[in-house]
Design a protein around this nucleic acid. Structure first.
Lengths: 209, 209
DNA sequence: GTCTATACTTAGATAGAC
DNA sequence: GTCTATCTAAGTATAGAC
């Protein structure tokens, strides 16, 4: 179906196939021929729409960011200071990795290749992190001797490793180095550790398991 | 120098150039011609010694593991239970990433490409982690409601992100999303948070900054 | 807009002289 | 062991008919 003369539909078919392949194999590992096969279209048609392989790659990233931002618009960032902002932050990061695997993988490939530029909209998220954390520190909801950057890195890292080292960690579990652990249990446990580690100093207000 | 007939020296020159390039650009992004240029040798000579590009890649990984294990033999794993095993673990992971950047990068490229197999000697490290953590839990030095896998992932993640998202995070700092933070300060801060987050429940023995 | 045919380039790998 | 010359396959990209 749609075998002829449907520019927009064709573009979307190509973008879909290319996104999968770039996520799986990276830029260098993906060929236009493979994108052509997976989308059921011809190579030249892909280049007609996107000019070059680079152009296709940029279009894929733009498309991902566009969809992601359209999604964000529906659910604005919660105001920091709901009391347990750190919990919100961990949960948000955890859900983001779970729900946007191709975006994360393409970003990972890009970062390894030396592309350190933030993706569209990322700055907004980080300013939200920083502002909310500083605010929580000001209110003495979390200790104020840990920099917001360290908190963000700690949380991002814990989440990143869980989703991106998944297969690798499963190998270690298979070899008996660790007991298996469910996604939910992991989320609960790192939340408990980080929240307690960030509790205000001096106060006896640590309670949760 | 060594322009003719020095098999072992040639092998090492090739391996050195190839390790750099595979770390920078990954397997697909590296060409034998580039390895030839960087090592000052010819392409066919590389294939004479390693048969195929795949063979070269495997030889590079083997060589890295060999050097790394030779290094480990000099300093055996500390026995868990020096009191603050978690601190030791964080420091060890932090130093590992800092001191083995090409190994880490090649492993990252490989993992993205779907290679989840543990590298030689890795199992030993993870069994050390697990055993020491379980032991620390048994002695009530750290809380026992957090699984060793979660602790390992939390620590690995915090360290991984710090070294592997470095350029990316610097972009965020440059954009004003965060204040700069030194390596040492980051290490101190995540150690403080994780150690406190893992302190035994119920006890009032949290003290450090 | 879409395809087939094809040009051009570069990749991995081999042949064979030295 | 090492090189030059070269092969073949595969890659990106273009030409031109429909």
């Amino acid at each position: 179906m749609a075998a002829a003369r449907d520019g927009e539909g064709t573009r979307r078919k190509i973008l879909g196939a290319a996104e999968e392949l770039f996520a799986e194999r990276g830029f260098d590992g993906t060929t236009i021929r493979e994108v052509a096969e997976r989308s059921g279209l011809s190579g030249p048609l892909i280049l007609f729409h996107f000019q070059t392989k680079e152009g296709l790659y940029e279009a894929v990233k733009d498309d991902i960011v566009r969809r992601w931002q359209a999604n964000l618009d529906g659910s604005p960032l919660p105001k920091g200071g709901a009391g347990a902002f750190v919990d919100v932050m961990i949960e948000a990061a955890f859900a983001f990795y779970r729900d946007n695997p191709t975006m994360v993988r393409i970003a990972n490939w890009g970062r390894l290749a030396g592309d350190d530029a933030p993706w569209g909209g990322e700055e907004e998220i980080h300013r939200w992190y920083r502002t909310s954390l500083v605010e929580a520190q000001r209110r003495k909801e979390i200790r104020d001797d840990i920099s917001p950057l360290a908190i963000t890195a700690l949380i991002s890292g814990a989440v990143h490793v869980w989703w991106e080292f998944r297969g690798h960690m499963e190998e270690h579990v298979r070899q008996g180095s660790y007991e298996p652990l469910s996604d939910d249990a992991y989320l609960d446990q790192i939340t408990a550790v980080i929240r307690r580690g960030l509790a205000p100093l001096g106060g006896e207000k640590e309670k949760e398991a």
